[in-house]
Nucleic acid binder design. Structure first.
Lengths: 146, 146
DNA sequence: CTGCTAATTGCAAATCATTTGCATTTGTAT
DNA sequence: ATACAAATGCAAATGATTTGCAATTAGCAG
């Protein structure tokens, strides 16, 4: 049972977030929405090569999307930043190959990890480690911010 | 009930992993072992300033430790790499403030996340998101490697 | 304790992904 | 169609991390 990839309405998404609809941004969002796993910048550049897009422009677009909460930037190891569309079903869980760096998104949430972990490890052969981080605001900052 | 920090025997650890016992490495491991949370390179540099250690040396030591499995490199957001000692009780879970970037290690494992999540969010005020990644080896690579 | 050898370090230069300034182009509202 | 702000391309800047190489140091043998 493979996960069905829903193509998104990139233009609507851009309008919703008050971005101008440019070819690069549209194709960027569509590319992300059609990928079964988070994409590193290099792969995005390849996918967008028809547009002869400047790296700077791609970075600017990605950063703007992250800022707007449309896209999630994922960093599993030091050097590898990957981007993925933020979606309902997407709870930001991933599994990464420590050999070839392949990444898969995992379609379940923390709440059910326990039961799924076993299946998961069979699919992926072997899990060596995992990393979990919560992001929030600590009390000190909440105080400081008001 | 605060977590007790156990100072480690840095010299023994170095010997065990066939590293030479140099002042920098000893202090580096001790610093990491006494920190309640993962430390970014910048803070490590500050802590080691008595030794006037060259950044290159610190990076080399950290990379060697990570390679040896003594230290874990944690990257929560794009630019911030942090290092922490790998310890029995340390299951590589963290909570990060999205305002000041403070990081706390979380003393429980995935298996009990469900029950702990509530307490956790009270302590930390508010959790906006979380990120979980498993690292392992995919089938393709297992095949390729033999 | 002394000397030997390989590992470690400091320094300076190189690297590489990402960011930035600025002039030009493009999208959108009027 | 026009105007203005936003987006882009290009080249240069940035900044953390890495690397080459010569000098130093730790560990070991005698």
């Amino acid at each position: 049972m493979k996960k069905q990839l829903q193509p998104i309405d990139a233009e609507a998404l851009l309008v919703e977030h008050e971005f101008k609809k440019t070819p690069l941004r549209i194709m960027l969002l569509e590319t992300l929405s059609l990928s079964p796993s988070p994409l590193p910048v290099l792969k995005l550049q390849r996918k967008l090569k028809k547009l002869a897009a400047d790296p700077a422009t791609i970075y600017r677009a990605l950063n703007a999307f992250v800022e707007a909460g449309i896209v999630n930037a994922l960093t599993v190891d030091k050097t590898k930043v990957m981007y993925e569309l933020v979606q309902e079903k997407n709870h930001l869980h991933h599994i990464v190959c420590n050999s070839c760096s392949a990444v898969e998104s995992i379609p379940f949430c923390v709440k059910t990890i326990d039961q799924q972990a076993v299946k998961l490890s069979r699919q992926f052969n072997k899990i060596h480690s995992h990393q979990l981080a919560f992001v929030g605001t600590c009390r000190k900052c909440v105080r400081a911010l008001r």
